[in-house]
Write a protein that binds this DNA or RNA. Structure first.
Lengths: 138, 138
DNA sequence: ATAGATGCAAAGGGTTTGCACTTGA
DNA sequence: TCAAGTGCAAACCCTTTGCATCTAT
């Protein structure tokens, strides 16, 4: 069974505080505020363990590394900011999904992804070249 | 300007015949039927060139490598088979996307992805462990 | 003739793993 | 105590790139 190490506690805290899905590098940066020497391998292992323990779920995105968020939320989708790279949760779902299903296919699951500029980036979209190093995501 | 090499012709043919988005490895396998010695680097370079020439577009998928399909199709989305890994085009779109947008956010684009079992895999879903080497995708 | 394209192999970037050391229960 | 967890570095996988060679134009 899992141990309450300082590292894993810092990592869990990072996800709880974030309020949005985090990439491993984002989780590392956030968790290092609570535990400075933290290594990236530990973050990956903690995420893997958390997925198995069930309190974290993967948010996989087209063309970008996976993010992870706390489990247990109700059905929702995600918004991916093209400027800062952050991913946000969006409530609700769409309609008429069922009519899209080709005959003979069996659908078990779906994703809806919105792309654009988040509330911080929308007013004056940041050119990707000018993103500061601290805001740049993997 | 681009040259009409045998390799690029074989690669283009692969996309035209497929009728669905292909991953680089799938395109390689298909194009090798027309040009045996083809190398994967050439496929990647041909895809990159085709994207710039505009006759191919990327289909990026959560948690999977990108696929590519012929450009110029009308608005559509994709289905990703969990058994064989193939990606299929699905016609149409959903409704009420707009109501999902959080205030202050600007949406430029969206994706809808369906997951499940394609018409070949739906009747008796293949366990991922038993996928044959030739059907396994990257 | 010559710039573009190819194939091989080596380099990159993100993720995973082996190993010796540390630490929580 | 001692297995789980950690940090480092090496291994991995997919993708890109350097380089010598080839080839369409």
């Amino acid at each position: 069974m899992p141990r309450n190490t300082k590292q894993r506690h810092a990592i869990r805290l990072a996800f709880e505080i974030a309020g949005r899905p985090l990439a491993p590098e984002e989780a590392l940066a956030a968790a290092r505020r609570a535990h400075a020497g933290l290594g990236i391998a530990t973050v990956y292992r903690a995420i893997k363990a958390a997925l198995e323990e069930g309190w974290l779920v993967a948010v996989e995105l087209p063309g970008s590394s996976a993010r992870y968020e706390l489990a247990g939320k109700k059905h929702h989708h995600h918004f991916h900011c093209r400027a800062c790279g952050k991913v946000f949760e969006i409530a609700g779902c769409v309609e008429n999904l069922r009519k899209l299903i080709p005959s003979g296919f069996r659908v078990t699951d779906h994703d809806v992804l919105l792309y654009g500029y988040c509330c911080d980036c929308a007013p004056a979209p940041i050119a990707s070249d000018s993103i500061s190093a601290t805001d740049r995501l993997p």
